[in-house]
Amino acid sequence: MKHFILNQVQQHSSQMPSADSTEKFYVVVGVIAILFVGIVTYLVSMDKRLKKLED
């Protein structure tokens, strides 16, 4: 029994820093998407402000 628990703990800790796991990778994709949408929103607003100046 003791061995079994130890095994479980070891297995768990060895799984934690898995380098090639794609776990939570989509979070980064989400962040990049938000970042781009933010920059584009600014670009659109600049476009509109310019339009006002031109008229």
Partner: peptide
């Protein structure tokens, strides 16, 4: 916005997400 500006937003956003 002009159509090609909207197209650029959609295409780059697609590139960022699908590309990853």
């Amino acid at each position: 916005l002009k159509w090609w500006k909207i197209a650029s937003i959609v295409l780059v956003l697609y590139t960022l997400i699908a590309g990853l």
